[in-house]
Design a protein around this nucleic acid. Structure first.
Lengths: 341, 341
DNA sequence: CCCCGAGCCTACATCGTTGTAGAGGCTCGC
DNA sequence: GCGAGCCTCTACAACGATGTAGGCTCGGGG
């Protein structure tokens, strides 16, 4: 049986409340008393009972991170960063995988685990315009990604349009003209797919290049497999791009795999750029050029925003932070860039 | 303010305990009463307060999964599987990243979060022989991986020796004779590195091939980067293997990257096999042949074992489960195997 | 000399739930 | 028609911590 404050109090010859005060850093305690209590704690290997503290204070010290799935490297790396950032704030993270399924995404907002947590960092996929109202919840919430405009809550995101524009502009700068886009969600406007496509089209327009629907490869899920499939059907249809813009790295890597299977050389025949800068891209063959969306910064900012929200019960106006992006050049667009790995 | 059982009880005109009984499925309740309570719960949008329940029952419904880091795809995919399996048992998972650092690994066993959780699924890296005693903890614990022999606790693992022997035997069967091993931990016996090397050497011995130390590439951390480095220094030293056995997939992919940078063809010049069967391997170029260690099975078994342990306070003898492995053949060892992706 | 505030500590109620014990009423077999 | 046993429900005391309120001592200002 684990020791309780009662046991510590008895051993130190003080009241239970004094033990509580020592544990919580209450200043008005005689040094000798504090020492006696600390010794007793040590001797009994006492640790505060989280459940009891939670009940009394209404805080659990746990935050939830809801994301599609950890098997997707981007989200695994994001989770890694969030957990580290949370650790620094003394917070523990539980992960909820919703798999991009609308019903599970909604569950996250109302589910049982809400009572287990002080707040939520939420990266939805299926939710979109029209769901704003669902986000008006009575617990601290920080939104990741860019599914929803005019949202009533804290939000950390990146400028998808601008970053995608830069990616396409970069390919155009290399002299590429027939740029395939893999991972398109036809009709979508507000999600990452829609926004990145918008940026891409804007760059084409600036360069005076007419868009070509045959170069848009749809892929609902952004996995390697779907990227490969989308690439394959485009090639099977006789389309011959000289560059590929994967709307995320997994798609780009899948597409790259398919291109190489068919004997196309990268970057000579086809240049490939991705989005996310997952670790894996640096070790692909060739290394994958990509857009670094500032994942670290996003994770850290999100945790800090949530932490402040939790701290101050007062309803402040929602904040919106936009992370910086960078283009990371590797061998999939320019030969010879893989050396420093 | 969230509704409490008190509120529900009042609205339904019953005692608070009856509400509790309804919520917990106590059988002896008149159907009409149950309905009234359920209606009240619905009307008030009542959800049980987890903290209070935890305090009373001593259970939190949370388990911890301790692993090196989520950035390593193997562990991300493992975490995915564990979370799903836990969900089915009604358990929530928190993830603790210890980064393979001994001190943090020990923290996991005694840290504050112990009080937050009902049990721990523990995948250590730095712990090893001599640490058995530390595992004699007073909470449910299931060990993953094969760091420690004669352990006093539940353990889910795979037969590393046998699987590695099969991997090397497979390469030998292809006619390869100079097999480099990447990721060796010199002097280690009980960890994955040691065991897999043992299996490798056994296969060589069976085939009557003398081992060659020059073909052993050390790498402490099993990342893509360290795999590439180990491969590079071996090649720089003038060693020319005709096959590479990466002790995990990340190492193998790093090595593959380095080989290709130097213009070596895979599998013609060098065949490459990995270990773990991470998703990424299927989409490498060429696809990475690997050993599938039965990750799903491991995750599911571990959660179930932990769940039973939590359920029955009685100290049963520790169980040990060994998962099945399979060799997954792809293009990195045999051309033409990548078609079905 | 008394009062006041700062410093140090304690008693008590309380957070929201569940375990224990048992009060009634009913059915059933003899 | 009566006790045994089942069904249905309730009162009360925990679980282990923290918030509130207040007691006591001591030194210094009025």
């Amino acid at each position: 049986m684990a020791a309780t404050m009662q046991d510590v109090a008895q051993r130190a010859g003080v009241s239970i409340k004094t033990v509580s005060n020592v544990v919580n850093g209450y200043p008005y305690i005689r040094e000798s008393t504090r020492q006696r209590v600390l010794d007793a704690i040590q001797a009994l290997d006492y640790q505060v009972n989280a459940a009891a503290r939670n009940l009394r204070t209404g805080r659990t010290g746990i935050i939830a991170l809801a994301l599609p799935e950890l098997s997707l490297p981007y989200f695994a790396e994001l989770a890694d960063a969030v957990i580290e950032a949370a650790d620094e704030q003394g917070l523990t993270v539980i992960i909820e995988q919703h798999g991009g399924r609308r019903e599970r995404e909604l569950d996250v907002l109302s589910g049982v685990r809400r009572h287990l947590t002080d707040g939520l960092i939420y990266s939805p996929l299926a939710l979109g315009e029209g769901d704003e109202a669902r986000l008006e919840v009575d617990f601290p919430l920080v939104l990741l990604g860019e599914r929803i405009f005019h949202d009533p809550v804290d939000h950390v995101t990146m400028d998808n349009v601008e970053a995608a524009r830069a990616a396409t502009a970069y390919l155009l700068g290399l002299g590429r003209r027939r740029i395939a886009v893999i991972g398109v969600h036809p009709g979508e406007v507000v999600g990452s797919a829609g926004l990145r496509l918008t940026g891409h089209l804007a760059a084409l327009a600036e360069a005076g290049i007419p868009p070509d629907d045959a170069l848009l490869g749809p892929a609902g899920l952004w996995h390697r497999a779907t990227g490969a499939e989308a690439m394959a059907s485009m090639l099977d249809a006789g389309v011959r791009p000289d560059a590929v813009f994967g709307l995320n790295d997994a798609l780009a890597l899948g597409a790259m795999h398919e291109l190489q299977l068919r004997g196309l050389r990268i970057p000579e025949d086809v240049a490939v750029i991705g989005f996310d800068d997952i670790d894996e891209g640096a070790y692909a063959n060739p290394g994958l050029t990509t857009v670094d969306p500032g994942r670290e910064q996003i994770a850290r900012t999100a945790v800090e925003m949530l932490s402040t929200r939790i701290g101050s019960r007062g309803a402040t106006a929602p904040h919106r932070v936009v992370a910086d992006y960078t283009i990371v050049v590797r061998g999939s667009t320019e030969p010879g860039h893989d050396r420093p790995a």
